[in-house]
């Protein structure tokens, strides 16, 4: 045995502790869970709880466990004497505007994005930066712009009148058609208030999102698929119908659903451009929670119902897609 054999070895535990890496794998999920609970689950549960609360006449509201708010949502406040479908109608208009605007945004963004993917890389980057930067504008700012553009005294209607376009429309007889569509008064064209202006502004709001969501899928689309179809006798429209659209079916559906859900909550555009009888659930929720009604429990009920309706739509979309996949 040598002297060296007698020297006790240093315990490696201490060194091991010092070099132990930061347990990021355990910390990150914990932080994420906390964030989700604090910012998503807790507010949702709070809204859910408030929806069962009770409004006190002439005062605020109190915690309770009543289903009156849900009953009111479906059959109106006068039930059982009378059934009114006002709140269901508001939900219907939420869907009506959101569906049309999301479809319009996707249908117009699709050809644009297809063309964009065929440009030079540097030009594509320039366009994408421009489109991304347009997202910096708030809903209020955009709606204000459209409000000026479509207002009767300073916008397009004035331009129509000054350039003689209104007179020409009257001469050729198309002015009456515009009146039938609610886009003209006896003197001139008018876009406020109208479904047209509401849908247009809502589409404009989400159009950059549509481009950005469709771009990855379209830029990955193999151009030889369309070329192969062309060599087999397919014209431009047949290629689009049988090859391009089916190849991007999932991203198309996903983008439309995402925009639809986003648009269900549109408030400013609907308030400014939609006729009062066509106001949506989002407007009604604001009116109940912060507006004139001060009926937070019923506002919360409407929010929950809007959420349930949106979730049902998303589930239905998912189900239809799986069915279509299964049928192939």
């Amino acid at each position: 045995m040598t002297v060296a054999d007698d020297i006790p070895l240093a315990k490696p535990a201490r060194a091991g502790k010092a070099t132990q890496p930061f347990p990021i794998r355990r910390v990150v999920p914990g932080v994420l869970t906390t964030l989700i609970v604090v910012f998503c689950v807790a507010p949702f549960l709070l809204v859910l709880a408030i929806s069962f609360g009770r409004k006190v006449d002439g005062a605020a509201w109190v915690w309770d466990l009543t289903f009156e708010n849900y009953q009111r949502f479906f059959v109106g406040v006068l039930w059982p004497d009378e059934i009114t479908l006002l709140y269901l109608q508001q939900l219907y208009y939420s869907f009506y505007f959101a569906v049309i605007a999301s479809l319009l945004a996707v249908l117009t963004a699709l050809p644009f994005t297809l063309l964009l993917t065929r440009l030079k890389r540097s030009t594509q980057a320039m366009w994408l930066v421009f489109i991304l930067s347009s997202l910096a504008m708030s809903e209020v700012f955009i709606v204000m712009g459209w409000d000026i553009l479509l207002s009767n005294n300073s916008g397009l209607p004035k331009l129509f009148r000054e350039t003689g376009l209104t007179a020409w429309l009257k001469d050729v007889g198309w002015f009456q058609t515009l009146r039938d569509w609610g886009l003209a008064n006896p003197r001139n064209v008018k876009f406020k208030t109208s479904d047209f202006a509401t849908v247009l502004t809502m589409s404009y709001l989400v159009w950059p999102y549509a481009v950005i969501l469709l771009y990855p899928a379209l830029s990955r689309l193999d151009p030889s698929l369309a070329e192969a179809a062309r060599t087999m006798g397919a014209g431009r429209w047949t290629v689009t119908r049988t090859v391009t659209l089916p190849s991007i079916r999932l991203p198309l559906l996903g983008t439309t659903l995402l925009l639809f859900v986003f648009l269900l909550g549109t408030y400013v555009a609907v308030t400014v451009f939609a006729a009062p009888e066509k106001h949506t659930t989002a407007v009604a929720i604001y009116s109940n929670v912060r507006g004139a009604n001060l009926n937070a429990p019923f506002g919360a009920t409407q929010a929950i119902m809007l959420l349930i309706a949106a979730s049902t739509c998303l589930s239905l979309g998912h189900l239809l897609n799986r069915k279509a996949e299964g049928a192939r």
Binding site: S224, E227, A228, A229, P246, S247, R249
Partner: peptide
């Protein structure tokens, strides 16, 4: 085609 360009759908 080089990639065969078969329609995946």
């Amino acid at each position: 085609f080089q990639s065969f360009a078969l329609f995946p759908h």
